[in-house]
Structure formats: structure tokens, C-alpha cells
Amino acid sequence: MPIIVGPNRFRSGGMLPQGSPLPAATYGTLHAYHGLLLQDRINSETFPVQTHLTINGTQQRLELDPRTTLLDALRHHLGLTGSKKGCDHGQCGACTVMVNGRRINSCLTLACMHDGDEVTTIEGIGQPGNLSDLQEAFVSEDGFQCGYCTPGQICSATAMLDEVRSGWPSHVTDDLTGDAALTTEEISERMSGNLCRCAAYPNIVEAIRKAAEKTA
């Protein structure tokens, strides 16, 4: 049960109901706060915050420790493990999802900050046998090696192509008030928030270009 400390006010740090998966947000920090957690355990109270999310078109009601990032909510509470945890600090882009149509790093935002929002993850973009243009192009152009960064690359690129269609300029666009051509330089700049440690970059750029041409 959520503990309502005040109107719209919730407290983190409590125990989760028995059998709940441990929020990964607490991995690595448990030892430091053992005393604190122990105290909460003695109280045997839970302090989740209620959050309603629409994930890939399905409404979800979650009760989460406020510390739970959107990424951990997806992976550990909803079983949507397509979004990957790379750096967990917004540097690698493996966790990229779309919130209300915009790409963001799901590791750098709390799930409870997104009450009422619509989230699209890689699971909502395509399925085996029914791939999106980008997914097909990543396969045909060999846009990956190990594949760990791929869901983030595809979520990011899906939203990035929407940004281009909306006329958003980038750092490398010459004319801020004109349209940008989707050159290699433009794709690289716009995708710089997604790292690929296998360095499949040339093929990722080709895949994005191919998908963009197909949709154009």
C-alpha cells in the first residue's frame, strides 16, 4: 500500500512487498544503507508511489519505490528487457526509449515522473516477422555485432527520423532555418548519444540511411 505522507507525496526507501523483484536502482548501494533499510524493515512498511504508464499501448499501474528509474521499471517490474542498461548514467544510449514520441535516456529519469505518459520501447516497435523499416535495415546492412546497443540505436533512430521530418536542425546543419539533408555527417551527429562498443557505426549509418530512404 502506498504511504501517503501528504497530498501527492511519497517516500522511498521502504521494503517492497514480498516476492517483488528488487529494484535495480538499489544494487550496489544496499551495503551503504544497510542500517537505514534495516530500520524500514523493522517497520515492515512499504512506501511505493503509484504511477500510471501506457507502455506500448498497454496501460500499466505500478507501485514503485520513487528511486526506480524508468529503465528499471521497464526491465525489472514489467519484464520488458529489450531496453538495455549500459552505463546507467545517460552516456551510452542503450536505454533509449520514446516518451510521448520523444527519445530519452530511460536510465536518467524516474518512473514516477512519468505518471500519465506514453512510453514506446523496442518491444513496441516491431516483432519477429513484422519488423520496422529500421529493424529490417539493421539486419540487411549488418548494423550490429553483439547487439547490446541495438534496441537503443533503433529507438533513437526511429525518433531521430521523426525529428528530421519535423525540420529540426542539428549541430552540423549549415542553415538553421532550412531543411537538413540526411548526410553521413548529419546521421552521425544526431546519433552521437548512442555508443556502439563493437564500432558498427558505418553499418548503423547505412541502415539508418536506407530506412530513411524507404520511408521518404
Binding site: V5, N8, F10, R11, S12, G13, G14, T26, V49, R67
Partner: peptide
């Protein structure tokens, strides 16, 4: 992350 109290501001 350390525990905190979370409030959704209405105004």
C-alpha cells in the same frame, strides 16, 4: 541512490 521523499508539485 539514497532514499528520499517524492512530491508532485501542483503549483
Amino acid at each position: 541512490m539514497r532514499p528520499f521523499e517524492y512530491t508532485r508539485a501542483q503549483s
